[in-house]
C-alpha cells in the first residue's frame, strides 16, 4: 500500500465495507499563510475505485472535502482476496493510489 493512503476492506454479511483515508492538504485557495499570502488551491478532483480492475465508483470532488479525505463505501459480490484499488488525481496533476485485499470481518 502506498504511504499516502490507508485502506481496509472487510466483508460484513452481504456487503463489503471499504474505508479509505488519504493524505492530502485539500487547500481551498481561500486560506492565507502567516504573512498574509493566499495559499494556492491544492485539492483532489477525481477519485476512482475498482474491484479486481472493474470500475465501481468514480467521484468528482471540490475544495470542501476535509483535509486528509475520508471515505467509506459499500460493495456487493466481493470475495476474500479480491483487490480494491483507489486512485486519485489532484488539481496540480499529482496522483495517489492504494490497494487492499478484501478480508473477512
Amino acid at each position: 500500500m502506498s504511504e499516502n493512503m490507508r485502506m481496509r476492506a472487510q466483508i460484513k454479511g452481504e456487503i463489503t465495507e471499504v474505508k479509505v483515508l488519504m493524505t492530502h492538504p485539500m487547500e481551498t485557495g481561500r486560506r492565507k499563510n502567516d504573512v498574509g499570502d493566499l495559499i494556492p488551491a491544492n485539492f483532489i478532483q477525481l477519485v476512482s475505485a475498482t474491484l479486481n480492475g472493474k470500475p465501481l465508483i468514480e467521484a468528482q470532488w471540490g475544495t470542501a472535502i476535509s483535509k486528509n479525505p475520508y471515505l467509506t463505501f459499500h460493495l456487493r459480490g466481493a470475495k476474500v482476496g479480491d483487490v480494491v484499488r483507489v486512485n486519485w488525481t489532484d488539481n496540480q496533476g499529482k496522483t495517489g493510489a492504494g490497494e487492499i485485499a478484501v478480508s473477512a470481518a
Binding site: 470500475p55 465501481l56 465508483i57 468514480e58 470542501a64 463505501f73
Partner: peptide
C-alpha cells in the same frame, strides 16, 4: 451540496454495478 458554502457543490459520486448508493465522507462547512 452545502447551500451556504462559498461554492455549493461538495462532491459527486457515481456508482457502477457492484457498488451501493451509499457514501460516508467528511466535509468543510
Amino acid at each position: 451540496f452545502v447551500e451556504n458554502n462559498p461554492t455549493v457543490l461538495i462532491a459527486n459520486f457515481m456508482f457502477s454495478e457492484g457498488a451501493d448508493g451509499f457514501v460516508v465522507t467528511r466535509i468543510k462547512m
